[in-house]
Write a protein that binds this DNA or RNA. Structure first.
Lengths: 159, 159
DNA sequence: TATTGTTATACTCTATAACTATA
DNA sequence: TATAGTTATAGAGTATAACAATA
């Protein structure tokens, strides 16, 4: 891996915009690979037979209160028909119920059930398990680095 | 997947060495959210009309030398027929060529073309662009944290 | 007339099973 | 017989378009 920050980017063009910019570009490339690879691994390790990734996201979203189909679709960045499909699956499994909004009868409020909460907790602990094992094997300094990195990444993704 | 974005601030300061295991579990949960959210954002921002994610991976894999269909399938963790499909798409677009292995005529060596290299470079810079902009806006300390975190994540995913 | 959600239909990417051509 | 790759077919998960109910 090319991680040595001491090495000047001589291989690049003779007049880079600035040393800071070039370093940021290199870091971005490394970081992208690290994030995409980790996410792929996490997704694979977390694979659950209980619920699909899409169903998981929906349950997590409505854990602290019901949302409409439209709100869920927007949140998951998918179209309404796709969300209807996901909700159908969750409803027939007994993990959510459809309710009416008395103030606007066009809307459908998707609410989590007790079974839904239980399956979410189960899936969540499974998803974290693989990572927790590896995190526990790190040094305290490495853990602190990851803790800080998690915060930075959250802020970057939120923008 | 949208857990409470309001991470309890108390949890960060109240992580004494005595609760090392519990801290690792909490960190794992935070880290998972950060990684999955970042990867989703990266995927969305990098979306290219030129080539699909699967095609991108294949081009990147054979950039420094041809590989067989079987090797590519194993590398991408998909079945051979799926890889045949991806290679078909790349071949008809002129981004790869199929070659024979003289030592074993059953095998098909997938080799990248000049056009394939060009489209890969283009897609790669696009994929990094969004992240590079945000990385450039960070402080030098934050960048160093991410650099170190990228290294740790790579090692964790490699195991 | 506009909006919310559903149904109908199609596309993409994946898988398994059966086939071919080599080994 | 076994292996590498392809073809045939099916199953998720997504999308757009058309529709019903409500605002």
């Amino acid at each position: 891996m090319i991680t040595s920050s001491a090495t000047p980017p001589a291989a690049r063009t003779a007049a880079p915009p600035s040393k800071r910019q070039a370093g940021a570009g290199l870091l971005a490339a490394e970081l992208r690979v690290a994030i995409m690879r980790s996410s792929r691994r996490l997704r694979a390790e977390a694979a659950s037979r209980d619920i699909s990734p899409g169903q998981y996201s929906v349950l997590a979203a409505i854990l602290h209160g019901p949302l409409t189909v439209g709100q869920l679709a927007e949140r998951e960045m998918i179209q309404a028909p796709s969300m209807t499909r996901i909700v159908n699956g969750l409803e027939s499994a007994g993990y959510v119920t459809r309710g009416e909004n008395p103030l606007d009868k066009r809307q459908v409020l998707v609410q989590i059930t007790e079974d839904g909460s239980a399956i979410l907790r189960k899936a969540r602990s499974r998803r974290t398990q693989w990572l927790a094992k590896r995190v526990a094997a790190l040094s305290p300094e490495e853990r602190e680095t990851l803790r800080e990195a998690a915060r930075i990444l959250q802020e970057m993704s939120a923008v």
